[in-house]
Design a protein around this nucleic acid. Structure first.
Lengths: 180, 180, 180, 180
DNA sequence: TTTT
DNA sequence: TTTT
C-alpha cells in the first residue's frame, strides 16, 4: 500500500517511437528515453556525465498517436508516468522482470534552440493550442511570434497570488543575469 | 541543507507567455500554469476537480525564447523546475513572499488529440527533431506519419534490458485494452 | 544530457536492510522497497491494488548505518534518490541490466498509527531532533507528547508567507473534516 | 485538467509541529519545512546555499498525531504531498493566496548521523516496525543493532530482478568508494 | 518479496 | 541506444 511512484524523466529518444494497435484497436506507442545525468565530481572538481539511464516507455491511446507523429529519434522529451515492473519469459523459458514506465504525459522539451526550427509552418499552425479547440490560428511563426506579449510592463499576468509581484515594474526578476 | 525541491507540474497556460529581456540581454519568459487535480471523492463516490493551483513560472535564456514562440494561452504543458520563494514589496511598502517555479524543462503535452492539429506543416517540418540535424524532412503530417514504425510485429525495439521483452511477439502489452 | 531522474518511492521493506562495507571501510546498505499503487478501476468502479513494484535500493555512508539500525522488514519508508541502471554479468556470462535506486534520503513514514509504538523510550529519547543540536531531551513520550504545541490559537507558526494565514483564527483549515 | 502535483521536499522543521483538532475530532498537524538547496555557482566555481524555501505543510488524522509525537524543531524530514493553494482574508479584509502542501507521507530522514542518538531506548522499542505490531522487540540499540544482517557475504538479498546481481560476490557495488 |  |  503505497502512494504512487509517479516520476518524471528528461532525456532523448533513442529511436523513433513505434506505434502499434491492440486487437481492439487501441493505439500503443513505445520508445526508449536516454537520460544522462550531469553530476559534479568532487575529486576532479568538474562536471561529468553520469551513467545514462535507458528507460523503456509505453503510451496509450491519443497520446500514442500524437507522439508517433511528432517525436523522432533524438528529440529531447519530458516524460511523466508511473514506474511499473513487467514480468515476461525469455525464449529459454526463464522468468525475467523489467522496470518500465507507463506514460501519463509526454512532450518535447523546448529547452534548447534546436527545438525551434521545426515549428515553422505555413498558413496558420504555430503554437500548441492544447486547449479546447483551435486557438491561435494565424500566428506567422518567426521570432517575435506566437502570441507572446513581449511588450508591456503592467499587463495583468492573470494568475497567481494576490497582488502579483510580476505586475509591478522593477521586480528583481528583471534585473541582470539569470540566477543560475 | 536539503536535497532539492525539483517538481513537475502539468497544466494549462492561463495566458500567452510574456517575454522580456534583462539589461544585459538575457531573455526571461514568465507564465502561469493552472493545474487542476482530479481527485476521487469517497463520500460522493465520484471523480471531482480539485482546487486549481495557479503557479507562476520563470524561464531563462533559450528556453524563454522558444516558449514565447510556441506556447500560447490554453496550451497544456509539462513543466519541471525548482520551487523557489521570492520576496518583494508591495506598492504600500509591505513585504510579501510568493512561491514560484524556476523552470528547467518545459514543453507542450501531447496527451490529447487537440495538440495534433497545430503541427501540420508544409514541405518538411513536422516532428520535433531535437537533435543535430535531420528532423525527418518529408513527413506529410496526417495520421500515419512522423517516422513511426507502424508496421512490423517483430522489429527489434532497440531498447531496454537484456533480452528485451518488447522484441518477443505476443507480449502482454499488445493484447487487448490498456491497463488504465 | 538530461536534468535529473530524482524520484521518490513509498513502500515497505521486503526484508531487513543488509549492511556491508567496502574495502576502504565505507558503509553501504541495500534493501528492496515494495510499492503497491492503489488505482481506481473504472470498469469495476472500485479501488484496487495495482502491480507491486519491487525496487532495489542502495544507501551509502552514514545513512547506511542509520537505516541498518532503525529500519526492519515491513517498515513503511519514504525513499528519495536517483534511478540508475547497473550492468552486470550472470554466472553464465550473460550481460544484464537492472534499474535500481541510489538513495539520497530515506526514512520511516509516520503515516500510520503502527509507527507509533516503537518510538516509546525511557528518560529522554523521543523525537528525531535531526537539527543543529538539542534534540529535545526530556519529552516523556505518550500521547500529548513530543513538543507539539497543542494548545494555542494564535501562536506564530514561524514560517511561510507574509502575514501567515495560519496565525489567524478561524482558518478554513480548522473547520470540519479533512479535505481528502 | 492535470495529472497531479505531487512533490517531495526535504528540509528541517522550523518549529515543533502544532497539533489541533477539528470540531468533529479529526487531528490536523501543521509545520513549516525549511529547504535549502545547494547549487553549484558556475561563476565562483563552488557550491553555495540557495535561497531557503519555507513551505507550510498540513497533515491529517493518524499521521498528524504521529508526527506531533516524534518530530521536533530542527528535525530533517522527507515530506511528500500535493501542492495546494489556499485563499484567505487578512485582518484588513484583503484577499490573499498562499501555496502550501497537503502531506501524504512524512517521516524523519536518516541521512545524517545525528538522527541516530534519539532512537536509543530501553527494553524493546528501537527500530521502526512499521508493520503489524511490534516486531523487533528486544534490540538493544547500539551499533550492531536493529535486525540488520551485517555479516554474510552471500546471503540472498531477496529482491530485484531475475538472477539478482546483488547476490553475486564481487559486484562493483562492493568495491571501493561510493559513486558520489 | 512487502503492506492500513 | 540518445544527447547543448
Amino acid at each position: 500500500m503505497a502512494g504512487e511512484t509517479v516520476i518524471t524523466v528528461v532525456g532523448n529518444l533513442t529511436a523513433d517511437p513505434e506505434l502499434r494497435f491492440t486487437p481492439s484497436g487501441a493505439a500503443v506507442a513505445s520508445f526508449t528515453v536516454a537520460s544522462t545525468p550531469r553530476t559534479f565530481d568532487r575529486q576532479a572538481n568538474e562536471w561529468k556525465d553520469g551513467e545514462t539511464l535507458f528507460l523503456r516507455c509505453s503510451v496509450w491511446r491519443e497520446a500514442a498517436e500524437n507522439i508517433a507523429e511528432s517525436l523522432t529519434k533524438g528529440t529531447r522529451v519530458i516524460v511523466q508516468g508511473r514506474l511499473v515492473q513487467r514480468s515476461f519469459e525469455t525464449r529459454e523459458g526463464e522468468k525475467r522482470t523489467v522496470v518500465e514506465m507507463q506514460v501519463d504525459e509526454v512532450g518535447p522539451s523546448l529547452r534548447y534552440a534546436t527545438a525551434k526550427v521545426t515549428r515553422a509552418s505555413r498558413g496558420g499552425g504555430g503554437g500548441f493550442g492544447g486547449g479546447q479547440g483551435g486557438y491561435g490560428g494565424g500566428q506567422q511563426g518567426g521570432y517575435a511570434a506566437a502570441g507572446a506579449q513581449q511588450g508591456g510592463g503592467y499587463n495583468a499576468p492573470g494568475g497567481g497570488q494576490a497582488d502579483d509581484p510580476w505586475a509591478t515594474g522593477g521586480s528583481s526578476a528583471f534585473n541582470d543575469e539569470p540566477p543560475f
